[in-house]
Amino acid sequence: MTDFSVLIFSAFALVLLGAAVGVITARNPVHAALFLVLAFFNGAGLWMMLEAEFLSIALVLVYVGAVMVLFLFVVMMLNVDLARLREGFWKHLPLGLGVGLLMVVEMVLVVSSKQFASLGAGMAPAAPGVSNTRELGLLLYTDYVYPFELAAVILLVAIVAAIALTLRRRKDSRYMDPAQQVRVKAADRIRIVAMRAEKDR
């Protein structure tokens, strides 16, 4: 790794960490969501440095472009009760810190182990001009076309199920049916009652 790439890596990593801290400390949920966007963006930068350009672009397009925008809308439209969300932050902090520390220790142990060190050693660097987007696409649409289509069917099930479970006409909402409106006849609207004429006294 050259000095220059170390510099870029440090920049991405530091901003990523800062943004991640920002997500959980920002008081305003919209700010928190924007920090998450920043974190994703820097993560994508790290992937780009690893020459995983497909994952990197997919992260920006799918997560930053679609999921987070949707998330922002939800945050803005739902009236989130901030005071209730923050309740118990200090109470749960020790447990959270403990779990976090444990994860850091475990990750250090795994990464510094012998098996991990030998993982990347045997791998030849990718030949110049190999695009992993193209390779992934080739595999996905040839060898893995059957699982790929099955995944598409599962998405279709998800759409059908989501609509079947949530779409229903509310009983208390008032609506009008223009087709019925134009078909109305005078007889439906007024009722003519036969009454004896009464004389004024």
Partner: peptide
């Protein structure tokens, strides 16, 4: 005949079944 296909078939079945169970919402 492939682990991935087996898993995708399983999820297809499980998700449809889950929606069917909840259909009477």
């Amino acid at each position: 005949n492939h682990f991935l296909v087996l898993y995708l078939g399983l999820e297809l079945l499980s998700l449809s079944m889950c929606a069917l169970i909840a259909l009477q919402r």
